[in-house]
Design a protein around this nucleic acid. Structure first.
Lengths: 214, 214, 214, 214
DNA sequence: GATGAATGAGTTTTCATTCAT
DNA sequence: TATGAATGAAAACTCATTCAT
């Protein structure tokens, strides 16, 4: 589980697919059938949270952005918190899936190490998508630190990440490796002068016990 | 810079000292002069953000909790964001100071390693104070990922942490060490089954290049 | 376009019809459907502006007077300015309509001259209705001198007045005639010792080129 | 009394002289002696009313713009209304003085007619100064139509204008001439396509009884 | 005399949610 | 089933004015 991975969340095709600027399906008249409205609301919610934070979202803003009637917000989601919880559930799933996809593609130990470095750098290099993912992660962490319902999300996400890492690394080091991924992603995202790949690779090697001895 | 350190923030005596439930200096009648009102508002703001998040705070809630008139909120701080920014500035300072104090007390390399492990565990073991610090950090990260004004805060904080680490560790490894502190603190805080000191120590040793070779 | 005409604005049955003290349609319980609420808000807004000026109106006051919930103010009108603009649009329409009605009833040149004198005197003779119209006009002029959106209103109003005058008078003199109407209405309204009909008639005759030579 | 004349108000050297962007006299420390602070507040008030209307001014905005302490506002003027009334008194005086200066310079009947045309056109041709004067006049009219205290101002102003006109024109026509000046100034100010000097001159001639007979 | 600090009442606006249709 | 209309509560913020100094 690491912040930068979230950045790639909207690349996951099915779960979070949506076209932000896309016109409403059909005219206002033919709004009748709009099957993926629920999904669009969820995706829009995440977009908006990334932009203005949990503190800045509202039913109205989401409805306007998703081109959905305001009344349908509470029809589809009983409350704001339910909407938020479901949105962050989607997020955690998408990010974990992404993590798994990357690690899963690694054929051997070396490729796994490379995949980890990729994960840390990928999209924490800046750009709107990266920001989106980072903000969303930190918002989720803040929520999770306060609320058990959100902590369940992060716990599951962390478990999936660790399980995936264990396919390539010794169980005794997956925790610290996961933590390193998290910390380096976060620092890279917030740092004015982010470390380059060499530094990251050395860090990963050290953590997995392959570093040069002092 | 690590989340768990924030937990200890309110132990720092000067910067953030405040007595939440303390009665106002003087009576309601003689409220005219209340010199540390500004400080009390800032401290209360952080307390409240820790409890309900940036999304949950409001002038009203802060004013009520700090026992100040609602009108004085915007007298002391031109806007909600100004208040928040100043509060988080205080937070970052206090946390960095705490970090420095811990590391500064270390007399040799061994003590520095121990201090790092302490920092990671300290108060990320749960309890209200821990939660406070964690939530505040994540809220700040979310803010920083979106807004340069807040990023200036995290950048300065990170620089201070790294400078302190460099007094004990090779510059080439302070970045990864700082990242590990961050990541382990975060994971310990959010994990249902947080790692114990042995694991943390092994992780720190590995990162500083003293780990057992595989 | 002349200030005093505005005084008659609330006589126009359709455009601005409203019963200030009328009870809400239905009980407080069945308020759900209150079709002409929008209109009532607009009419009340003009009433209140007439009484206390643009400077003195507020959502609260209007809501209370119109017997609508405060929350419905910004539901029907996105902002205070939108409300004011729409209210003044109504006003300008009503006043212009009144002007046309008066002039339109004139069958020949002589009747047109009489109609103009009527227009100047009508209700600028004092009384609450007169005040209402005058104040509203000056408030609108002040708005128009500052803001193009309001100027569009006065421009259209002036055009309608002039078009109507041209049905009875030479195009070369409608502008000065319209200006005279404006000026005499204004001065009569603000003067402690307003001129009587004879003076007005002589002024109109002079302006249309029928005055006695010196 | 005519709107456009107001535009020239700030040319009157003594009464309303002030430098909007001028730095405070002396430093913040040497604020002690600031003899024309009262005058500066009054001038700033008119400037601000011209910009944002009576509805938009506030003690705070005026104080900030005039570079005086907020507390000194209510020290110099017991209430907002007192400040406004005194400011508009200054305005009416300045405008009437301007009117007198123009008319007083006329040596004969022909020059008086020219002066009147000048007055109508002068600065109602647009530009910030013109807007300032026009807005201020209409704001004053709105105030006067509602409040006797302000009406006293307009009444005196009108009397002075008329007295001056009577030095050049037959008493029987000064009222209609004054009204024409008022109306033409106003229409020129608000019209998208203001009349040119020829039209104005013809109007003035007609009103003073020198027009071509039909 | 003059003012910085302060505040209670008020401002506009936004909000989540309800509910008749 | 879906939604436009509606609203009470609360949001952030501004205000004129007071008053200790």
């Amino acid at each position: 589980m690491a912040a930068s991975d979230v950045a790639a969340a909207d690349k996951v095709p099915i779960d979070l697919a949506h076209a932000p600027g896309a016109p409403a399906t059909g005219t206002a008249r033919t709004r009748r059938t709009d099957p993926d409205r629920r999904e669009r609301i969820l995706a829009t919610t995440l977009d908006l949270v990334a932009e203005v934070g949990v503190a800045g979202v509202s039913h109205r803003k989401i409805a306007a952005r998703a081109d959905v009637p305001l009344g349908s917000m509470t029809y589809h989601f009983a409350s704001m918190d339910e909407l938020l919880h479901e949105a962050f559930t989607r997020l955690a799933d998408a990010v974990a899936a992404r993590f798994e996809a990357r690690l899963g593609a690694a054929r051997d130990h070396e490729e796994a190490v490379e995949a980890v470095v990729d994960l840390i750098h990928e999209l924490s290099d800046g750009g709107p998508t990266s920001t989106r993912g980072n903000v969303l992660s930190y918002e989720l962490y803040a929520l999770a630190a306060r609320d058990p319902r959100y902590r369940a999300l992060t716990t599951a996400w962390m478990a999936r990440s660790r399980r995936e890492l264990e396919r390539h690394f010794d169980p005794r080091i997956t925790r610290r490796l996961d933590a390193l991924i998290e910390g380096m992603s976060l620092h890279r995202a917030l740092d004015e002068d982010p470390v380059d790949r060499t530094v990251t690779l050395a860090a990963v090697r050290a953590v997995v016990g392959e570093g040069d001895q002092r």
